[in-house]
């Protein structure tokens, strides 16, 4: 009886959105909004007087910049990687602002729970770190990547295949899947518990205890929403720090 009342929708029904106008759906809206919010925040921050102690929007922007510099660049690439701060900063802000709509009412959809944006970002990172590797080490980048220094000759074919797959193929793939699957899983969990709550409240049943039971999945929903706040930040952080690690490794192979 309850099993009939609760029917999980088709996966596409909770992920695909109708076009607002031609070829512009909610995902596109979130992506564009993320870029616009990022630009506006940094524009306003830049317009403020830099001499006085930063507060408000400037404080936010400077805190983010320092988080990227101290928490990510200095930890993984060292001082020579500080030139990558703008790229990593925009990566972090864009991913975070694409993740966070998953818990914002009305929007209720992380843009990164669709394959497109994580895949594009991972491919971009792939192009960037390989480009950096070739620029810094020339053609030796390829041999260094495939055969790390100190590999015995006898093992070279085996190590070569493994390293090639792990560095060139698995890296962008895992980067994509990590972000995408985390956000998708979070979204599906939220949908599941929201549906449970809703179907318990609206269930047409004679059993009096059934409707108050909706509080249980509702609590779970609240907890998961709080958890998604953390996940949205953490996934943006992990994507950015892995990008930094890959770029740093390509630029300086000894690390």
């Amino acid at each position: 009886m309850l099993a009939e009342a609760f029917k999980f929708p088709e996966i596409n029904a909770i992920l695909r959105w109708q076009d607002i106008f031609t070829s512009f759906n909610k995902i596109a809206l979130i992506a564009v909004a993320a870029a616009v919010i990022g630009i506006v925040v940094f524009l306003l921050a830049g317009n403020k007087d830099a001499k006085v102690a930063p507060k408000g929007v400037r404080n936010l922007a400077e805190t983010t910049v320092e988080f990227i510099e101290d928490g990510i660049v200095m930890q993984t690439m060292g001082k020579s990687g500080l030139g990558w701060t703008p790229f990593l900063l925009s990566l972090f802000i864009f991913i975070y602002l694409c993740n966070v709509p998953g818990i914002i009412p009305i929007l209720q959809m992380p843009a990164t729970a669709r394959m497109a944006i994580p895949m594009f970002l991972a491919l971009l990172v792939w192009v960037v770190y390989n480009g950096v590797g070739f620029k810094h080490q020339g053609i030796t980048y390829l041999t260094h990547t495939i055969w790390p220094p100190g590999v015995p000759v006898a093992l070279k074919p085996l190590v070569g295949v493994i390293e090639f797959i792990s560095n060139i193929i698995v890296r962008p793939f895992s980067l994509t899947v990590r972000l995408f699957a985390n956000m998708l899983a979070g979204h599906i969990l939220l949908v599941t518990f929201a549906l449970l709550t809703q179907s318990l409240i609206t269930a047409e049943t004679q059993q009096l205890l059934l409707k108050p039971m909706a509080i249980l999945p509702f609590f779970m929903l609240v907890f998961l929403t709080a958890f998604e706040v953390l996940v949205a930040f953490l996934q943006a952080y992990i994507f950015t720090i892995l990008t930094a690690v890959y770029i740093g490794g390509a630029a300086h192979p000894e690390h």
Binding site: G71, V177, R178, A181, N182, L184, I241
Partner: peptide
Amino acid sequence: RTTMFLGIAFTEALALIGFV
């Protein structure tokens, strides 16, 4: 902590591939 997050990211990827 930084290294821990990196390790978690790599380990977690396997579970996430399973999820996909």
